[in-house]
Design a protein around this nucleic acid. Sequence first.
DNA 1: TCACCGATTGAATATTTGCTCATACATGCT
DNA 2: AGCATGTATGAGCAAATATTCAATCGGTGA
Lengths: 319, 319
Amino acid sequence: MSLRSESGNNRLDDAARAGWLYYIAGNTQEEIATKLGVSRQSAQRLVSLAMSEGLVKVRLDHPIANCLELAERLKSAFALDFAEVVPSDETSTSTTIGVAQAASMEIEKWLRSSEPIIMAIGTGRTLKAAIDQLPKMDCPQHRIVSLTGNITPDGSAAFYNVIFNLADTVKARSYPMPLPVFATSREERDLLHQQPMIKTTLDLAAKANITFLGIGDLSNDAPLYQDGFITEPELKALQKSGGVGEIVGWSFDRDGRVFEGMTNDRVASAPIPSREKSLVVAIAKGVKKLPGISGAIHRRIINGLITDEVTAEALLAEK
Amino acid sequence: MSLRSESGNNRLDDAARAGWLYYIAGNTQEEIATKLGVSRQSAQRLVSLAMSEGLVKVRLDHPIANCLELAERLKSAFALDFAEVVPSDETSTSTTIGVAQAASMEIEKWLRSSEPIIMAIGTGRTLKAAIDQLPKMDCPQHRIVSLTGNITPDGSAAFYNVIFNLADTVKARSYPMPLPVFATSREERDLLHQQPMIKTTLDLAAKANITFLGIGDLSNDAPLYQDGFITEPELKALQKSGGVGEIVGWSFDRDGRVFEGMTNDRVASAPIPSREKSLVVAIAKGVKKLPGISGAIHRRIINGLITDEVTAEALLAEK
DNA sequence: TCACCGATTGAATATTTGCTCATACATGCT
DNA sequence: AGCATGTATGAGCAAATATTCAATCGGTGA
């Protein structure tokens, strides 16, 4: 027993020594082997033992470290396929700062692929801010498809429909949807969706490899209402039914259940692409959007999220 | 300027990310390259940058039996109140490697105290290396006081005066000494020490609970001489009188007797805090410093020591 | 505008590390 | 003794990492 523990101690001692020489003094395993008088392989085993026994502790001293940890926790807590958390700037109330840059980088990364991809794009101020960050690129191999119509109730092009900016900046083929964002009725919506040109676009959207979209809140100053897409009574009705957020117009409740009826009958947007076969990333942060984000990730309306530290912590806390 | 710092920040951010993914999440550099959207080589560079910039900190959490035993023997042989021995890397000539990490952990331990403490800080390359290892902390309850002036002969801030770095990293109140390290004469020194502000700092230093400092040698490339604090004739005079080391400028001989006269007349540093009522820990290793360390512990100029195996063995052997 | 400088990049290459497997060796059991 | 079992070892190889070098990029000043 004593001998056993003795030898165990010696082994850990050696491991500690090897780990010290490796991680702190920066020796190679070969040098360590020489110094400790063992073979290179044994030295390697000692070093790896020091690590697996937890003798060696690595710490990262940078604000980013916390973000990465939060991202990992989000991914595992909500079964997300992608998560990115950026540092919060508590003093700023902007809903775009930070996440826009992060989203832009992510979008750019996808576009840099030489493999042709189909990218679907939703709407929103945050998304627009992200697109604005993109550098000029030349991506004729990709196709970019809008999930939403681009005609506002007053007939003008929707300001926060960002596909034109995006396609222009990165010179990719673009597939906007020449539709109102909301039809006047379910029947009209279905009719519009039957049109060959629209149908092609919808089919393309369904095949998207990657989707970026925003999440809108349904508070009294909900973007859908502010931009005149839905009326005040309609907003009230959504709120009354427990609506907490919307994605490209589709409203849902705190459990992420997308409503049947109400304004959802009139939404002319494409269905959100498959979360099983592709990545659907929402870009959203902030207290106001929290219930919406929470709902969306609980039911996998999205399977990717770009948010900030404060929001990430709130999401994890309420789980 | 703003753009420059921006890009620098992003680079460090990326480095932190890469370092996190590599050291904490255990990704290979190739995986990191994919995730960050850069080439494998760039990922490698980022990882190595994270390390060289000190974003990644490694520490070893295992008392190696031989080191523990040496520490105990040091404590009993020299009536030290504190001793810590780290493994030696015989091939490395660095005077900071290993002891710096150990010192950093010890400093951190003191700073973690919720009880407010006064920590006095000396100078030296080893101490600087230790401070660089400290994580960001938030210690408004503590006060950190410098034992030495922070003005070099050429008027610039002394590089190895580490109190600014330290106070900044751990966010404690700091009390530097706006003085030259050496005055031009005994009279000037005494006059400077009369100034109210300096006096306050000196009083605070005398009340320190814990002191960390380095030991300098008095060989031909003594740090005091190299950094231009004393002249070559002065160094020769110290050597001739049997000087073997100095602590915050105070030179002493192999028996630890602090000289009267010579450059000691001009030292503007605070007296070393009481070894009866507080802990004064020196961080020092290496053959060159051996006589100095030996002198310092023989007369209890210090009552704590952080050193390495080889130095510890040499100290015990010569006793 | 253009030559120049320093920084950054990716390809090629060298070095280092991690893994697998066959063997050796010790220990305990029949 | 003979055998089985579990563990440590080192050779060989595949993977990963570090370094070198030439090319390129971006900014600067003549």
